[in-house]
Write a protein that binds this DNA or RNA. Structure first.
Lengths: 205, 205
DNA sequence: CAGGCACTGTTATTTTTTTCACAACACCTA
DNA sequence: TAGGTGTTGTGAAAAAAATAACAGTGCCTG
């Protein structure tokens, strides 16, 4: 089990590596990757140590190989299936963001309460009525959900998701959800993020 | 200067306090606030110590008063002015999210390159053409920017923002931006967040 | 008013995370 | 091949963050 911070950074490293691959860069030194990721070279080396990856003193790290090694650690054997609940502006934005990256994260269903939306295919993904939530989740074996719906509905949906078998929730609704210990919850409150940025923008980092 | 983590939590606390206020709760104990925020009571007390706020052993913390004290620490003397660059689905979602909360964060301008958008008022905020960026930023005294635009344009816009005087950037574009040390940068890559959730959903927290 | 209770503020401790420092190693050059 | 250079892997140190522990305090009760 890797700590949260390290997982976050590994995910960032992989993605930096992949964009470098597109530019045909085949190897990188720790200090190069470090400057891209805005961390120290020592941090890079230590993080790679935790996943047991070794470079070579002369050539640094093999970009493609390292990216694959990170994937081996972060990705499961099978792709994780993801649902998006709430297809307002934010939901649609996220679906289109994600669906053309990361093949091991498959958005297989979206849900909404608006009857003009469900039944249709939005951003390349079928939108279901919200009362079909449990059925589809179980049918598809969905384990991760993204919540992009109004605050007042979020807790009820979270409860239903958990009961249906979801073990990870990424919550964009500005509400503090209560979930059991079994479910991993990550909150991404936009306002909180903005307050933080405003604070440090003012105080001068 | 307060550390990042503490700022994040204080922001969360305030918001929890405010929602409690709406429910006419006038005081709270550290363990109550702790359970809402999913942190330990000791953490709460320590965080409040850093902003020099004191409760009383008998009654805990006065909700309204504490919220105001946090505000005194997090908010500047004047409201921070914010710009949103890129009014796709994500940009519109964020504007409507934020504009009806947090009076000390004022979204005063949005920008887009699409000529069918600029000139209009979207989600209650005037949308300008992107080539007016420098002019409006300086005119309005905008210090914080939210980037919700395609990856390939992000770095160029970030450079222009910095030159125009922006000191805080909240970046939703999936690109690692390079900015000078003077600018506080917070990345909110959706894919990275989802990867993290998927990882812990699988590994069982 | 004395005593017990329940909570706070703060110091001390532990744990986690990051950085430092350096031996070991590959590679290049002569 | 020997020596110099520049990078890695990792143990040790430092720094940061979280937790625990407890004295001090207001409040209630009898």
């Amino acid at each position: 089990m890797i700590s949260e911070k390290i997982v976050e950074r590994l995910s960032l490293y992989r993605w930096l590596l992949e964009t470098r691959l597109e530019n045909e860069v085949s190897n990188l030194f720790s200090y190069q990757l470090a400057s891209m990721a805005c961390v120290s070279p020592a941090q890079i080396r230590r993080d790679l140590m935790t996943i047991g990856y070794s470079g070579s003193p002369g050539k640094g790290y093999l970009v493609a190989d390292l990216a694959k090694s990170i994937g081996k650690e972060l990705d499961g054997a099978k792709p994780s299936k993801v649902a998006v609940v709430g297809m307002g502006n934010l939901g649609r934005a996220l679906v289109s963001f994600i669906s053309d990256r990361r093949s091991h994260l498959q958005i297989v269903a979206t849900f909404d309460t608006d009857s003009t939306k469900y039944g249709r295919v939005i951003c390349g993904c079928r939108c279901y009525a919200q009362n079909e939530l449990e059925k589809i989740i179980k049918l598809e074996g969905i384990t991760v959900a993204i919540l992009t719906l109004p605050s007042d509905a979020a807790q009820a949906v979270a409860d239903r998701l958990e009961k249906a078998g979801v073990t990870g929730i990424l919550n964009y609704a500005p509400v503090p959800l209560k979930v059991s210990k079994k479910v991993y919850l990550e909150n991404r409150d936009v306002t909180a993020a903005l307050e933080k940025v405003a604070y440090f923008a003012r105080e001068g980092d």
